[in-house]
């Protein structure tokens, strides 16, 4: 599977070379992480993301994201996607290749924009530690309404995997992961201007695995942002997931796994050009067979327009009957080269 992705990437790169006279945008985002837990500090989570982006013709663009952890694990292909965004009828756009489907809000956001450094645990339990990225096809329609209203439908070769990142080159995600087959996902989202500087986005998503083990996930997301000027903004992002799994056994017997409800709410306030701070709470009704919730505070410092960022995240976790644990994480993030602006 991995070799197919690498081949696809080389093919797409070849297309870029052949069809354009200018280079695509190439950027690298690097990360160095430090975790302090139970009075032990570890330098960890260090990785780099390479992004190659550009138009291949007047109608389509290609975005390739490669991720390499600073360990023995091989390079991971996060995305290699051809997007046709101009020229299709009925307000339609298409994406084909390996990509993060339009499912929920957080799934399409890259890790380096998270002010709290890491994916909330309950979300990682639903979407996988590396979130959901798979090969397939996605169609999007901008519906003919006075406000922004988008419907996305996607068919993917692989559903959400529970694979974790392995630091050993010999173990692959595919070997360890629960095998999840073809999947379908849909998202409907709307966006409203609540004034000149206030905006609201709401979305509803559905995910279904198309095989014997029936897994479905429903998600609702809401994001509000207030940005009165260049130096101040307040963003409030919320998401709730409901996951059900049914194993259809022999002789018509169906085993229903416990329903999982997972959610997070994140508030991020940029109070100066270079400073932001905020809080996050998250919850899972059933994370590794017990209820879980955590509260966290974070602060970020960006001295040069997000090309260098220092973040600190303090978190307290409560898992079932276990004693609460505290965690401090720090992250130094740097970015080299032009990187496509992140959408709302």
């Amino acid at each position: 599977m991995r070799s197919r992705y690498i081949f696809l990437m080389i093919f797409l790169m070849g297309s870029i070379q052949a069809q354009t006279t200018v280079n695509p945008d190439i950027s690298v985002i690097g990360e160095l992480g430090l975790t302090l837990e139970d009075n032990t500090s570890t330098m960890n989570a260090s990785s780099v993301e390479l992004a190659i982006q550009g138009y291949v013709n007047p109608y389509a663009r290609v975005d390739v994201y490669l991720h390499k952890h600073m360990d023995e694990a091989p390079i991971e292909l996060e995305e290699a996607v051809l997007s046709i965004e101009r020229g299709l009828p009925l307000g339609m756009a298409l994406r084909a290749g390996k990509f993060r489907p339009d499912f929920g809000k957080i799934n399409r956001q890259h890790l380096h924009i998270f002010p709290q450094i890491v994916l909330p645990e309950p979300v990682a339990e639903i979407l996988g530690e590396e979130k959901w990225s798979a090969a397939g096809l996605e169609a999007k329609w901008l519906l003919p309404l006075p406000w922004y209203s988008n419907l996305s439908l996607a068919y993917l070769q692989e559903g959400i995997s529970n694979a974790e990142h392995h630091h050993d080159a010999e173990v692959t995600d595919a070997e360890e992961a629960e095998n999840v087959g073809e999947a379908f996902s849909a998202r409907y989202s709307m966006f409203f201007d609540l004034g000149i500087v206030s905006h609201l986005e709401i979305g509803g998503s559905y995910y279904q695995v198309l095989e014997e083990t029936e897994i479905n996930v429903m998600a609702l997301d809401l994001k509000y942002k207030w940005r009165p000027d260049k130096y101040r903004s307040l963003a409030w992002q919320n998401e709730v997931f409901r996951r059900n799994q049914y194993d259809h056994l022999d002789e018509g017997v169906t085993e229903h796994h416990p329903e999982v409800i997972a959610a997070y709410s994140q508030l991020n306030y940029q109070f100066r050009k270079v400073w932001n701070a905020g809080a996050i709470i998250d919850y899972s009704s059933h994370l590794e067979e017990a209820a879980y919730h955590s509260e966290g505070l974070f602060v970020g410092f960006s001295p040069a327009e997000e090309t260098t960022v220092l973040r600190v995240f303090l978190k307290q976790e409560h898992h079932g009957d276990e004693e609460s644990t505290s965690l401090v994480q720090a992250q130094l993030l740097w970015s080299l080269g032009p990187h496509k602006a992140h959408q709302f």
Partner: peptide
């Protein structure tokens, strides 16, 4: 300039888009 979906609706109804160019308004492409 943050790329807001509501901007896309404005451009959806437009006949012409005027860019400053010279990489000032790269956000316009999105």
């Amino acid at each position: 300039v943050e790329v807001l979906p509501s901007f896309m609706i404005k451009v959806k109804r437009a006949d012409m888009y005027l860019m400053v160019g010279m990489e000032l308004d790269q956000w316009a492409e999105q």
